[in-house]
Simulated assay, not measured.
Amino acid sequence: MEVEVKLRLPDSETYKTLISLLSPFHIRTHNQHNNFFDGVSGELSTRRAVLRIRFYNDQPTTRCVICLKAKAVLVNGVSRVEEDEEEIDPSIGEECVANPNRFKSLVESNRIVKRLKDEFFGGSDELGFVYLGGFKNLRNVYEWKGLMIEVDETSFEFGTLYEIECESSEPEKAKELIEELLKENGVSYSNSVASKFAIFRSGNLP
């Protein structure tokens, strides 16, 4: 179970203010490209699940991670979602994006694809996937007061979202600390009301 604090920033100026405020605590930046898939007959979405391939296009190394997310709940700026992920060769990830049928050949070598076959396709060899599209995300990561704070600039075709994320086993405590920082420095924010994937599928910024 992944548990995260999720707070939305209203605009690019607020985002820049926060980036400047946190700059002494910056540890890394990720250039992410997220790609999403469903079963051809909605086998994943009908059970509140989604398959994602994420490329980390960071210099000097590109990484690729396949991830299954399910049963996401977002309440009062705290997200809880079942998450299972595994790193794969970036070239295989690119092949899956270009041709989702490539997933079939990974059943024996990839734990997550094997799980998809067993749990979402009833063990059938006739599993099939469809590419839903994706979006890019620039993620700056900061280590502050024992928290790993991620500040995202997410580029959709229909607009840009600015968001704070912080994974924590004590989300309420982490949220309180982050909110204190924002309030003390006059940084506007609100609780996030939808996941990035939900926003992507809706085609509109909330």
Rank of each mutant, 00 (worst) to 15 (best):
E2I: 13
K6T: 00
L7P: 00
R8V: 13
D11P: 10
D11R: 08
E13T: 10
T14L: 04
T14R: 02
Y15H: 08
T17P: 03
T17G: 11
L18D: 01
L18W: 04
S20Q: 12
L22A: 01
P24I: 10
F25W: 13
H26W: 06
I27G: 05
I27M: 10
R28P: 03
H30K: 14
N34C: 11
F37N: 04
S41W: 11
E43C: 06
S45I: 14
S45C: 06
T46Y: 06
R47D: 08
R47P: 00
R48H: 15
R52K: 10
R52H: 05
F55V: 05
T61I: 15
T61G: 05
R63E: 14
R63P: 00
R63Q: 12
V65W: 09
C67N: 11
L68Q: 01
K69V: 12
K69C: 02
A70Q: 15
A72P: 04
A72E: 13
V73S: 14
G77D: 04
V78P: 00
E83D: 11
E85M: 13
E86M: 08
I88N: 05
D89T: 09
P90L: 07
I92T: 15
G93I: 07
E95I: 12
V97N: 00
A98D: 07
N99Q: 14
R102A: 08
S105D: 14
S105L: 12
S105N: 08
V107S: 01
N110E: 07
R111T: 13
K114P: 00
L116N: 00
L116W: 02
G123Y: 06
S124N: 09
S124D: 10
S124L: 05
S124T: 12
E126W: 10
E126P: 01
E126F: 09
L127I: 08
F129L: 10
Y131W: 07
Y131S: 10
G133P: 04
G134V: 07
F135H: 03
N140H: 15
N140I: 06
Y142T: 05
Y142F: 15
K145I: 11
K145F: 09
I149D: 01
I149T: 01
V151S: 03
L161E: 10
C166V: 02
S168I: 09
E170L: 12
E172F: 09
A174W: 00
A174F: 01
K175I: 07
E176N: 07
E180K: 15
L181C: 06
L182G: 00
L182T: 03
K183T: 08
N185D: 09
S188Q: 11
S188C: 11
Y189L: 12
N191P: 09
N191H: 13
S192M: 08
S192H: 02
S195H: 03
S195R: 00
K196Q: 06
A198H: 13
F200M: 03
R201F: 08
S202D: 10
